Every structure is written in structure tokens, then in C-alpha cells.
Simulated scan of single mutants.
Amino acid sequence: MTDLNGKFFWYELMTSDPQAAIAFYGDIVGWTAQPFGGERTDDPYHVVSGSAGPMGGIMSIPAEAKDRGMSPWWGGYVGSADVDADAKRLAGAGGSVKRAPEDIPGVGRFAVMSDPGGAAFMLLKGSSPDGMEPAPPMANGHVGWHELYSGAFDADLAFYTGQFGWAKGEAMDMGEMGSYQLVSQTGGTDFQSMTGGIMARPPEVPVPVWLFYFVVPDIDIATEKVKAGGGTVLNGPMEVPGGAWIIQATDPQGAMFALVGMRSGTA
């Protein structure tokens, strides 16, 4: 069983229109969606699955969060062996507890955190002893890359490498935009082991945030589907090291996301 502690393993969209989001992403990314536990309520939590199985969920923005002005947002869950202890440890290392640890019946124990620069993420320990196996690299519909638009580059890099054991790879010079630091959640230091990158937040991104890249089989087809479905392409398609292509976009409700895939004839 793969150790998920300190690694992103579940991704969740809180949105103003779950049914519209399910249709939008289902068309582009190919997800299937099922109400959690088969529940039949007016506003269920939907589990979404890629080619290798469940990878995340889509839900309505909770009323208390909506009252605080929360906008549609993709968040990521990091595995934890002890949510209470990890929340305390991470707060002592420069992070912040945004929602104290509590139980989700039938799911596990979680807490909402932020890193030193202000980007939010969640901790989660599942209630079942049966863990999830990670999807194969670049499996369709799963997350192929994790990117932090950091509010405090040096502090955030030290936070994730020091507290989660992530390894640093190459630091790529982006000129006026600073460095793009490759990181690996699995501890490897070669390029093939890299699972994400950390960069200073660009001016056009309003707040520090984690951006998740969903894998698609053809980036050009997916890009056209984003536009046709009412989303907005912010950047790309752009080629990245390794031969893949990426876009960054917002969905029709305003949540930021990204796609990664090959071009026809380049796979």
C-alpha cells in the first residue's frame, strides 16, 4: 500500500453550480460522477473518477463559506497519519489553521490549513484502513501536475520540503518572474520524479493558490471544449519540458484549473 502521508491525493471543487460543473468537466476531462455513498439528496457530494478510479469530488460551496464570500475553488487534500498533531506541527512551522480538525462521518478527520504564503490546502486521515493507490503517471482524468502560485516563495519552499519531505529538483530561471522550483512529493530528485512546481504568484493571480493540472488525451481538443462549454482559457496551449502541452483556464463558475496533455501525433 502506497504511503499517502504528506502527498496530495484527493481534489475537491466547491462551486456555485455542481451539476453544471459535473457536465463541464465530464465533457472535457472525461470524468464520471456518482453521489457519495449512493445518497439521494437535493445537494449530494459527487465523487468524480478518472481512468484509474476515484480522484476527487464536486460539491456546493457550504453556506457558511458562501456567507464569508468564498468563490468557486479547487482544493487539494494531503494525507495525514494524525491530523491534530500535523495541524499543530504545521502551524508551528509557519502555516495557519483555517479550520480546526474535525470528523467527517464515514470519511475521516480533516483540517483546513494554509502555508506561510497563504495558499490553502486540507489535511485528511481516512476512517478506513484501506488507502487509495495513486493513479499511474499521466492517467487520463487524474492530476498530472501540482503548481503553487506562492505568496512567500522561500518560506513556502522550506515549509513543503521541511514539513512534508518533498524533494527539490531543478530550479528553472523564468527571468522577471523569478525561479520555477520543481518539487517531488515522492522524494526523487531526477526530472521523471517531479510532481509539481513552486513559483512566485504572478500579478494576474489574485491570491496565493494551488493549481491542479488534469490530464487529457489531446490538449487541442480539450481546449476547444473549454471554450465551447463556457470556460475561459487564460494561457496556452504551451509546450512544457517533456513534450506535453498545458493550458490554464477558469470554468464557467469562475474556478481556476489547468489541463495537461499531448498534441495529436506527438504522444
Rank of each mutant, 00 (worst) to 15 (best):
L4C: 08
G6I: 06
K7E: 02
S16Q: 11
D17N: 15
Q19G: 00
F24Q: 03
Y25C: 06
G26F: 12
V29F: 13
V29K: 09
G30I: 08
W31I: 11
Q34C: 00
P35T: 08
P35C: 10
R40C: 02
D43F: 01
H46N: 12
V47E: 06
S49R: 09
G53W: 05
R68D: 11
G69N: 04
S71N: 12
P72W: 08
W74F: 12
G75S: 15
A81E: 14
A81G: 15
V83K: 10
A85E: 09
K88H: 00
S96M: 13
V97N: 03
R99P: 05
A100K: 06
P101L: 07
P101H: 06
P101Y: 06
P101I: 03
E102L: 09
E102A: 14
G108P: 07
R109Y: 04
F110E: 04
M113W: 05
D115F: 03
P116D: 00
G117A: 07
A119Q: 01
A120L: 10
F121H: 04
L123K: 10
L124T: 05
G126L: 07
P134G: 04
H142P: 06
W145P: 04
L148E: 01
G151D: 00
A152I: 01
D154Q: 12
A155L: 04
D156Q: 07
L157T: 14
G162V: 05
Q163P: 00
F164E: 05
D173S: 01
M174F: 08
M177N: 03
S184P: 07
S184D: 11
Q185M: 15
G187I: 00
D190F: 06
Q192G: 09
S193Q: 10
G196V: 10
R201W: 07
P208Q: 12
L211K: 14
F214C: 10
I219F: 09
I219D: 01
K227W: 01
G230T: 01
T232V: 14
T232Q: 15
L234N: 15
G243C: 11
A244S: 13
W245H: 15
I246E: 12
I246G: 11
I247F: 12
Q248C: 06
A249Y: 11
T250S: 14
T250N: 15
Q253W: 04
A255M: 07
F257M: 03
F257I: 04
L259H: 10
L259E: 12
G261M: 05
M262H: 15
R263I: 14
G265H: 11
T266E: 15
T266M: 14
T266F: 08
